[in-house]
Nucleic acid binder design. Structure first.
Length: 560
RNA sequence: GGCCCCAUCGUCUAGGCCGGUCUAGGACACCGGGUUUUCAACCCGGCGACAGGGGUUCAAAUCCCCUUGGGGCUACCA
């Protein structure tokens, strides 16, 4: 019975790394029949917001990661927002202060910077110079009167600290190398290090599964636990997901792509771009020169305006790109982790000619992930996020999903991307879904079927496709269209069968491949050479619209 | 710079802890072919890795050391 937690800082959308952490914590809690807690670490007043916390919760739920205790569901350790637990932290601060295990300090940011600089010059790690005598309450009053900030630092013991980590083994740290870190900020809020240790104890956390970026924080946390007489949970520091350019995958990746696009765009109207992003011209300049980064909505809006595709990083980005949560969950679960062969329900024996042990299948549902979960199987190596493979996973999960769930996912997607297909009735959408088998994402399906939801006069003809399919060889495609128009209007009944029969008949009569007949028709009704299967397409579009589009194409391109 | 972590195909990984069963397996990508009304999908085939160097051992992808490379942390952020 493990009690695990996901403890995000609500600074914006939930990103892929956070989702992966949350997933593994959920997996372990479910596997052991324990409890999974969501705790909001909003101790940075300048960067956290309530809407961001809500967004993170929406994203988690979309993924199917539901917490047992936390905001909106409650639980025995309420409240689950750290900003509402200040009195709790203060009690422990007092306790440490009284025991001389923590002390006040009054340095300004500038003074600290100076000390750090000096340490860097000496090629040393900065360690805060602990005063030989700790300031007392009189000193605090004096400092306050002088207008100085008051903070509290934890007095880090000199002894070696060993982190016994599930994935890394025993990692040793010299206590002397670790600075006396701040546990209470000058605004009266605890730092992450402190609040996290208190809450893990109070909430009965038994296992902490988190990213490797926290490994260096852990000795400090352990020292704090010892000083307070707390238990130390089991730690598992997972590998990190990195992006192509190297480095942790982060929102910066998206901003970088946008910035490069801005730099490459010639004759760009910067003022217009700034206004589209809802930022000032100065802010845009600062962004371009690399001094700052606009927030997510601004980045998204500008990218849309410039028509650049940004790499997905936040969970909503993946949603908007047409991925299924099942696929995403499956995929991130296999980054830095692989299920045990013995436990896998989908292990197959090895074939003749294959070396090694049996082979475990990769396409797994959340339940299968839970059933087979084994934290000892984390691997230590950082992994690169391969979107191509995610797409392949997405296709598999679309095939796996029942018709109804796929439909409801698709409708959610259409709404979010504001597709003109969003209002369509279920029967039509189901038909589109069926005709789209083999598509990689929901976005692909939407793109391929947009022609059904576009007014006849607003179909945009792709000039290359028009040239290739309609105009080439003295307009043989256009000539074909003329014949098709006649034949189509002569059909007694219009359905997939009759359309197919007619098209095949025409191709045979002309002694050409079906493509010579189908492609001109496709371009006429869709504007491009890529669409759903042609028979279906015509049937769904209807005879009248099909004829109108054929006429329009003939009129528009004859004599060119 | 300091401290810490890591190292198998292009990518995700199996195998490593218990050295021989590994001429290193799978998946994705890629390349070639087939199928085909487009794009996909689908089928068949191919390319492709134990970072380098030292040990230990009868034997090393597997154990040890060094080098190199990558990553993390180094905040009154979490």
């Amino acid at each position: 019975m493990a009690v695990t937690r996901f403890a995000p800082s609500p600074t914006g959308y939930l990103h892929i790394g956070g989702a992966r952490t949350a997933l593994f914590d959920l997996l372990w809690a479910r596997k052991t029949g324990g409890s999974f807690i969501l705790r909001i670490e909003d101790t940075d007043r300048s960067r956290n917001s309530l809407t961001a916390a809500k967004q993170v919760m929406d994203d988690l739920r979309w993924l199917g990661i539901q917490w047992d205790q936390g905001p909106e569901v409650g639980g025995p350790a309420e409240p689950y927002y750290q900003s509402q637990r200040l009195d709790i932290y203060n009690r422990y601060i007092e306790q440490l202060l009284a025991a001389d295990k923590a002390y006040y300090c009054f340095d300004t940011a500038d003074e600290l910077d100076q000390m750090r600089k000096k340490a860097a010059e000496k090629k040393q790690n900065f360690v805060y110079p602990r005063p030989s005598k700790f300031p007392d309450s009189a000193d605090v009053e004096k400092a306050k009167a002088a207008g100085r900030d008051v903070m509290v630092r934890f007095c880090m013991p000199d002894e070696e600290v060993i982190v016994d980590d599930v994935v890394r083994g025993q990692v040793k740290f010299g206590g002397k190398d670790i600075s006396d870190f701040i546990i209470l900020k000058s605004d009266g809020f605890p730092t992450y290090h402190f609040a996290c240790v208190i809450d893990d104890e109070l909430m009965g956390i038994t296992h902490v599964i988190r990213g490797q970026e926290h490994l260096m924080n852990t000795p400090g946390h352990i020292a704090l636990q010892k000083a307070l007489g707390f238990k130390t949970p089991v730690y598992a520091h997972m590998s990190i997901t990195v992006s192509e350019g190297g480095g942790k995958m982060s929102k910066r990746d998206r901003a970088k792509v946008l910035k490069d696009a801005i730099k490459k765009t010639e004759g760009l109207d910067k003022e217009k771009l700034a206004s589209i992003g809802g930022i000032s011209a100065e802010e845009l300049d600062k962004f371009i020169t690399g001094d700052s980064m606009p927030d997510n909505p601004a980045v998204d809006a500008m990218a849309e305006f410039l028509n650049v595709e940004l790499p997905e990083v936040n969970i909503v980005d993946f949603f908007k790109s047409g991925y299924l949560p099942q696929a995403l969950v499956n995929f991130i679960a296999l980054l830095g982790y692989s299920p045990s062969l013995a436990n896998s329900p989908k292990t197959r024996p090895r074939l003749a000619g294959e070396a090694g042990p049996p082979v475990a299948q990769e396409i797994l549902t959340l339940q299968e992930l839970i059933d087979t979960f084994d934290p000892s199987r984390f691997n230590k190596t950082n992994s690169l996020f391969d979107r191509k493979k995610l797409q392949a996973f997405n296709m598999e999960h679309m095939k796996l999903l029942g018709e109804d769930e796929l439909l409801s996912r698709y409708k959610d997607f259409l709404k979010v991307v504001k597709s003109p297909a969003a209002g369509a009735d279920d029967a039509l959408l189901k038909r589109i879904l069926k005709a789209s088998e083999g598509a990689r994402t929901l976005a692909d399906i939407d793109h391929k079927s947009r022609f059904l939801f576009t007014e006849d006069g607003k179909i945009e003809y792709n000039s290359k496709d028009v040239e290739k399919v309609l105009l080439k060889n003295n307009g043989e495609g256009l000539a074909m269209l003329a014949e098709l128009k006649t034949l189509l209007s002569l059909l007694p009944v219009l359905n997939e069968e009759t359309i197919e029969k007619m098209l095949r008949g025409l191709a045979e009569e002309k002694k050409v491949g079906l493509g010579k007949v189908a492609q001109p028709l496709r371009v006429a009704i869709c504007g491009t050479t890529v669409s759903l299967p042609i028979f279906e397409s015509i049937d769904m579009l209807g005879l009248d619209a099909t004829i109108r589009r054929i006429e329009r194409a003939i009129n528009q391109f004859s004599g060119k």
